[in-house]
Structure formats: C-alpha cells, structure tokens
Amino acid sequence: MNLFKNTIVASLLSFFLVIASFSQASADRLTRAVADWTGGMVTCEVAEQILEQELGYKIDSIVFPSGTGLWEAVADGSDIQFACESWPSYAEADEVMVNQKLIYNGEVVKDDYNGDGSVEVYTTGIIGSSDYFVPKYFVDANPGFKGWEDLNDYKDQFATAETGAKGRLIGCPVPGWNCHDQKRLDLLGIDFVADELGTEVAALAEASAAYERGEAFLLYFFTPHWFQGAYEMVPVNLPANVPCETFNEANNFTVCGPDKWPATGWAKDYTINYMNPAVFAKPEMAAAKGFFKKMNLDNADQAAMINEIDKNGRDIVEVVQEWKDNNSDKWSTWLP
C-alpha cells in the first residue's frame, strides 16, 4: 500500500511538472476588469463583444474592485490590460497617471491632466452625473423643502434606528469610489450619517424598500441608472463642483474649506476607458486601440440595457448581444 501511495504521489508530481513546463501567452489575448456597477459592466461587455466578435481578440475578465488599486494594476499591465468606464470625478488616480487631452466627439473636454502617462484613456461616450436624491412624494408632502440646505429641518423624517437623532444618507456603497460622503455632509453642516452598504445593489434594495413603504430617504446615485426610470426621484442640487487641489491621497486629504470639493456636488463626468499604453502600443493591438479611440456608446442605449438587466433580471451577455445584433449601424462606425 505504501509503495502504491508513493507511486501516486510521484506521478502527480511529474504530472504537475510536465504541465508546468508548457506555458504559452497568446498574442492577442487581453484581460479586463469587471466593474462594480451595472452601467460599467454593460460598457465593458459591449467593448468585449465587439473586440471578440468583430476584431478577433480573446478577452478574459477578472473580478476586481474599482479604485486606485485597479488603476495601478492597469498601469502595471501584466495582469489587467484595460478597464472600462472610469468616472473621472470618482477616480483619484487619473490625475496622477494620465497625461493626455481628453477628447469627446472631436472636442477637447479636459486638457489639464499632468500625470506620469502610465495609463492611457479614451472616452466611452457615456456622460455621467451624480447627486443626492429624495423621493418626489417627500417633496410633494413638504413644500418647504427646496434643496440640500433644508435637509437639517427635516432630519427627523430621515432618521433610522441605526442613526438615532441624525438623518441617514444611503451613501456611495463602495469605498473605492471615493465619494467622501461623510466628509461632504460634515463640511456642508448637514446633520446626517452616510451609510455605506457594501454593494450598489444593497443600497438600491434598501432605497426601493423605503420607497415602497413611502418613507423619506436620502439616496446617493448617478445617471444613467435604472432607478431613475423606476421611481420618481428629485435631486437636492448639491453646490456646483469646485475642485480642491489638496484633497487627495498625496496631501493626506487636506480639505480646502466649505465651498470646494468634497463640499460640492460632482462634476459632469465624461467617462473613460483606461488601458496600459505599452500593451496597446504593440502592432497586434492597433485594432483594439483604434476601436477604443472611436467607441461612443450613448446614455440612452446604456440605460435601456441596464433596465433590462437590473429590472427584468436578464443575463448581461444576452442583453448586450441583443443590442449589438440590432444596432450594427451604431457600432460599425466605431470599428477602426
């Protein structure tokens, strides 16, 4: 029996060694990250299907939380070569890593990137905006409520068991999104607690349940998003975005005062796909790069797909494939 075991062990050993000696990296194989939120997933799935079906690439995907860590991974390039739909006002790494003009529909929309150029970016076509929202029935019932300045007067209605006397904001669900909700509330003097629920879906489940019960609630979310179509929500119109130079990792998040970011709303986001410049400079990647330069998915299309996935519970691959089959006039213009 003992010899038998030894043989098994020995053969297993040699088996591993033999397969370990084969290793090959396919030339036009790319790895992308899967986004944290449905919109980002849709954008990347659209890109993946076009790259695979029309341009003959093989795309792998890795589930990885968005945030600076992902930007660093893309800059490194050995494990993840591109990721989709970063929202510049959420990313903090873009200022450090991007060094090029951002062009949308032939127009320069941002030309003050002064990073080290370790990551290359192209717009996706999606334009995002974010704010805090309250349900419309709350505004109807409280005509005195005009916007975020009045939140404190109604905080009792927004309080929950967890937050006690303070009101609750169903905040940005994922830390890597860099929303700084609590900081914003404190700077603006809003006596609310930001609740981070861990996933986008958990936050929205909480919000939908509150909506169905007709309770008052304050919710962070962004458009394009299915929530906007499904429920009537009113933005509280946070102050217009004013950037703050020192509020970043390098300066230990030193605030600029009560009238600059993060005490303001988010800027209008020309969302970007970001990729490793060295990898995409290779001749075999020219087609992929050409595609990313031209990709221009519009908000309405993405919103329709998000709705199919999140409201009707359909599979993302199937939904995107259906869109691709019916909209060849749109995506064919993106091909290099």
Binding site: G69, W71, G176, E249
Partner: peptide, 19 residues
Amino acid sequence: LIGGKGLGREVFNGLARSD
C-alpha cells in the same frame, strides 16, 4: 461586503485605495 463597519472596512478601504 454586506455592510459591516469598523476595522474590516478600513482593510477594504486600504485595498480599494491601494493603501
């Protein structure tokens, strides 16, 4: 991952910010 707070979230924050 499901909304816990405290040190665990600090670890996650560190991961997300690559800190």
